[in-house]
Amino acid sequence: MNLEYKLVNILTEQFAIIDNVYKEGIESSTKSTLGYNFAEAVPLIKASIRIELLQDDKLFLIIKAACVFEIEDESWNVIYDNSSNTVTLPKIFACFLATFTMNTTRGILHAKTEGLPVHSAVILPLTSFEEIVKEDVVIVLAK
């Protein structure tokens, strides 16, 4: 199935560096969350990624970024179920949206930390979403 779409917005929904937590030379760890949402009235899908960077279990940086994609009407009719108010993203398409959003988040993170001491610690590893998104993603619109 070939879905037609276009990127219509990039959002930095959250960004913070917690002062006095980051220490150079100490290994950092990452916690990530992937989410999808849609609006009932318009054919838009939002993919968002939230990343927390920690050292010794202490949060030193948080970023949440999202990409909003407009879905072409014919494609929307394929993935949107009006009776259940759900959108079903085929696994391959869901992985693509996640990968695009993660790469965008990397760029935002680079721009926001360039020239800061944390910059070298915020290089995010490559992520294979095919291992994370194991099946089609069904999004239920919250009432």
Rank of each mutant, 00 (worst) to 15 (best):
C67R: 04
L54E: 11
A41H: 11
N85Q: 09
V8F: 08
T113L: 13
I71P: 00
F93W: 11
K112M: 07
Y5T: 07
K64E: 08
R106A: 04
F60Y: 06
E40P: 07
H110V: 15
M102P: 05
A94S: 06
I45M: 01
F100S: 14
I63A: 01
L116V: 15
M102G: 07
F15A: 01
K46P: 01
T101D: 00
N103I: 14
T104K: 13
F96I: 04
V118L: 09
K31T: 12
S128F: 10
T88L: 02
T86P: 10
N20H: 07
Y5D: 07
S84W: 14
I71C: 07
I132N: 10
S84L: 11
G35M: 05
I71F: 01
Y22I: 06
T127Y: 10
E27T: 14
S84Q: 10
F69Q: 00
A47S: 13
K6E: 15
W76K: 00
S75P: 02
L7M: 14
E130Y: 10
L7N: 03
T101P: 06
I17S: 07
M102Y: 14
L34Q: 12
I79M: 01
F93D: 06
L109K: 03
E27K: 08
V68C: 03
N9D: 10
E135F: 04
A47H: 06
K6L: 14
Y80T: 01
Q55A: 02
L141Y: 09
D57T: 03
E74H: 07
V21H: 01
P43H: 07
E4S: 13
V21G: 08
E27C: 05
L141S: 14
L11T: 05
I108T: 05
A94T: 08
A111E: 13
P117K: 04
E13S: 08
C67I: 09
S120R: 15
L141F: 12
E72G: 03
N37H: 11
Y22P: 11
A121N: 04
K134L: 15
K6R: 15
V140L: 11
N2G: 12
C95S: 15
V42H: 14
K23C: 12
L59F: 04
A65Y: 05
K6T: 13
A142C: 13
A121T: 06
M102S: 15
P43D: 01
F15S: 00
I139C: 05
E52L: 05
F129T: 03
T113D: 13
L54K: 09
G35H: 11
A65C: 13
E130G: 05
L89F: 09
R106M: 04
C95Q: 13
E135R: 02
L7E: 02
T105H: 02
